[in-house]
């Protein structure tokens, strides 16, 4: 009996370690649904939240990739701003939509790859390198826009992805789900994903095992920049304007989402669905607390505390396992 009780307790603890964050997310949803049934617990609001978290999820997926290789990319906010601004400028110049999206994405891949190349080639800290790159990108964005918001003469086609719906669901939500599934597949079912996790787990052992560490890291940074720029383009499309600092607000929540995600599914390891849950929790908290008219400074306190608690629990969980 005692052994059964112990086994049960261990498996329950394990279950909570793996699904606790998801469970917390569900509890938060239940709590908001009870407190604000007329506005929070509605189909319209589910659609609303799915649209609101789409940029955060997309940019966080990239952050998850670089965190999987044990690095950080602090230029994602600036990359998102640049992506939005370049796309908007091209749209204003009358370029076709596919080109408005493709050019900033290509630019972002090059910039991301350069980030990775500098870090792996010169063995410098990703923190500092990407912080520097972020500053450079911020400067370029201001130079391109003269500091002003681009909103005049933006064609309607530019707003399509950000503002239109398919079958009453925002296109943004479809894009977010599609990318989450694609990157979940890449990270869980391809050699590239396994190599990224191997590098993050033990870089020298991976190198000794014949993994091309530098090349894979460069690709992780390139994907990260690509997703950041895409988030920026979609944000500009949604707002119908591109602001030179629009991506800045995504940077910290993206890492908060990835850290929260590390407490789900694959404990202590950055993972795609975990990041999705993390971004959703951040989005739901912001949405629900606003609906409950909680002052914004208290919203920050609540959200910040939850992230801190999650990170502590993730550390405790990892140490215990």
């Amino acid at each position: 009996m005692n052994r059964m009780q112990t086994t049960y307790a261990v498996s329950l603890r394990k279950w909570f370690r793996v699904y606790g964050t998801l469970f917390a997310g569900i509890l938060i949803i239940l709590c908001f649904s009870l407190l604000s049934p007329d506005s929070f617990a509605t189909v319209d609001n589910v659609i609303n939240i799915s649209r609101q978290i789409s940029f955060l999820v997309i940019i966080s997926l990239g952050a998850t990739l670089v965190m999987a290789v044990g690095e950080f990319d602090l230029s994602i906010g600036a990359m998102a701003s640049l992506g939005g601004v370049v796309a908007a400028k091209l749209a204003v110049a009358g370029q076709p939509m596919w080109l408005c999206i493709l050019i900033p994405l290509v630019v972002s891949v090059v910039i991301g790859y350069i980030n990775g190349w500098i870090i792996t080639k010169f063995k410098v800290l990703s923190f500092i390198t990407t912080l520097g790159m972020g500053t450079v990108l911020g400067g370029i964005t201001f130079w391109l826009t003269d500091g002003a918001t681009i909103f005049e003469n933006i064609p309607d086609s530019f707003r399509y992805l950000g503002q239109k719906m398919w079958f009453t669901v925002p296109i943004l939500s479809f894009i977010m789900l599609f990318l989450t599934i694609v990157f979940w597949y890449i990270m869980s079912h391809t050699a590239f994903g396994r190599k990224l996790y191997a590098i993050g787990g033990n870089e020298s052992a991976s190198r000794n095992a014949g993994v091309a560490v530098a090349q894979n890291k460069n690709l992780a940074f390139a994907f990260c920049a690509l997703l950041a720029a895409l988030a920026g383009i979609l944000m500009a499309s949604r707002l119908g304007s591109a602001q030179p600092t629009s991506g800045d607000g995504l940077f910290l929540p993206a890492y908060a989402a990835a850290f929260l995600g590390m407490t789900s599914f694959k404990e202590g390891v950055p993972n795609i669905w975990g990041t999705f849950v993390g971004a959703a929790i951040i989005g739901i908290l912001a949405n629900g607390l606003t609906m409950l008219e909680v002052p914004s400074f208290l919203q920050d306190v609540v959200t910040g505390c939850i992230v801190i608690v999650a990170v502590i629990l993730q550390k405790i969980g990892r140490d215990a396992s």
């Binding site: 629009s246 607000g249 995504l250 606003t290 002052p295 914004s296």
Partner: peptide
């Protein structure tokens, strides 16, 4: 009062929230 600390994307989100209420 809702403040988004310079973040216009968030402002759009929060505006949608208050519209929903």
């Amino acid at each position: 009062v809702v403040d988004t600390k310079g973040d216009v994307g968030q402002l759009a989100n929060r505006m949608e929230d208050v519209i929903a209420t």
